[in-house]
Structures are given as structure tokens and as C-alpha cells.
Design a protein around this nucleic acid. Structure first.
Lengths: 117, 117
DNA sequence: ATGGCTGTATTATGGCACTGATGCACCTCG
DNA sequence: CGAGGTGCATCAGTGCCATAATACAGCCAT
């Protein structure tokens, strides 16, 4: 069962979005650096340029990335920390409660699993 | 940002499926009891009968629910525990690793959040 | 037997998200 | 200026989701 939770069946542009967000937070794309071009990342990931563009889109809207038309997209100063803070808020308020109750229902305790990995 | 994680934008039949699964595990639909009829649940949830049927479908396939045609659908004996076990496995192997690394990236520790709620 | 309740099959339709192909506007560098 | 790199807009195609309207098949109490 369970053709359920967001795994591989998740939209490509969202997977890319998460992947990029992680890269920014981890510093793989340092502040001030230029992100891979739409076409380059598309080729590397085997995706369509538009799909990549759609993933990038959300970062521009949030002002985490600056677009220099005809040049490229650059990571804004302070983007990593802002992004981390925002994602943390979102996680705590929207994801964690559901996960928590779900674990409770399944008879699992976060404290126990904290050790693994 | 984040029109992301599976919340309200999730397909209706999957939300129903989760809701029913939770009810079975929690014993709201005890073993041997009859589930709400397709039409009844549809009316109550403001959904289409076929959508409810689609949600029920998966439980039959897994043998968690027994259909008595013309009568109704009944929760099979041992369904709650089987369902819990199955979901727990799925959660631990497919969801938790991602959640764990995600929390690590955001600087969160499961042990700390275990207390809340 | 009949009415009323079950689940199920069929077909059609509208909407929406995702993906894709092409071409255009813009910038930089030689 | 021209070549090659950017991002971006437009149009089209595809598939899933949800709904709807019927109709059918089975069971049961009256």
C-alpha cells in the first residue's frame, strides 16, 4: 500500500527546489555566488530547463536570489540564514505537529530515534 | 514559500485513506465493526461516493477490510495491529530518514521536540 | 416479493498540475 | 558588431484527480 507520502512521486520542480535550498543552507552555493544556469542544471539533472526555472522561481519571489538578466542568478547576502530560519519555522509549525501525532499513533518515540543515524 | 509539503493540497482520496487508517488504528472503527457506507461517508465529508470508494479500495486490496456485497465493509480481525505494523515500517524506512536529515540541516534535535505536546 | 440499504461498473467531463519544445530579450566578452 | 551565454514568455500536450449521472448486483427486514 501507500502510494502515499512524498517520495519519488513528488513533482520534479519541488524536489529540485528542496535540493537547491539544502545546497544554499549548507553553503554549497555560497552567498554572492552564481547558481548553476537553468540549462546547466537541467542537463545535469536530466530535467527540462523550464522545470528548473520553476524551481528557481520561488527563490526569486522570496528575495533569496537576485537575477541579473542575461547574466545569471546570484545568492543574496544572508540568504542561507534567512532560508534556514524560514524553513525551521515552517517545519516546526506545519510539519512537526503532524509527524508527532503520527509517530504517537504508531507507537514511536522521537527520543529513541534521535540516536540512529 | 512552500506550497510544498503534503497538507491540504493532497488528493482527497488520500486524505480520506489516512483518516480511515488512523481511525482503524485508534480503534474508532473496531475490528469486526462495519465501516461507514460509501454514500454515508461521502455525504458526511462532502465528497463524492466514488472518491470514498477509491479510498476504501486500498484497504480491501490489503485484506484489512472484508466486503460483504450488499451489506457493507467490515474491519478484519487483527487489522489494527497489522496496519500499525505496516505503517510503522513504512515510516521508519521511507519517511524518517528524510525527516531526520532535514532536521539536522535545520539545526533541530528530535530529542528536544519530543517533549512538546 | 418489495423497498431500501449495501458496494460496484461504466462513461463522460472539467479542471489543474506537470512537463515539454521553441523562440525571444537581455547581457558580456572578444 | 556578433557569438554565446543568460533568464523568460508563450503555446501545447499529457495525465491525474474529482465530479457527475446512471445503472447494475447483492443482501435484508418488512
Amino acid at each position: 500500500m501507500n502510494p502515499n507520502r512524498p517520495h519519488s512521486n513528488r513533482p520534479v520542480y519541488l524536489k529540485l527546489r528542496d535540493q537547491i535550498a539544502a545546497a544554499i543552507i549548507d553553503g554549497a552555493y555560497p552567498e554572492g555566488a552564481m547558481l548553476p544556469s537553468v540549462r546547466a542544471l537541467a542537463a545535469e539533472q536530466g530535467a527540462n530547463p523550464l522545470t528548473v526555472a520553476k524551481a528557481y522561481q520561488q527563490f526569486q519571489n522570496d528575495g533569496l536570489v537576485e537575477v541579473q538578466r542575461g547574466v545569471g542568478m546570484y545568492v543574496v547576502k544572508g540568504a542561507a540564514e534567512r532560508l534556514r530560519a524560514r524553513e525551521r519555522e515552517a517545519f516546526l509549525h506545519e510539519e512537526w505537529p503532524e509527524i508527532r501525532s503520527r509517530m504517537r499513533r504508531l507507537g514511536l518515540d522521537p527520543a529513541d530515534l534521535a540516536l540512529s543515524s
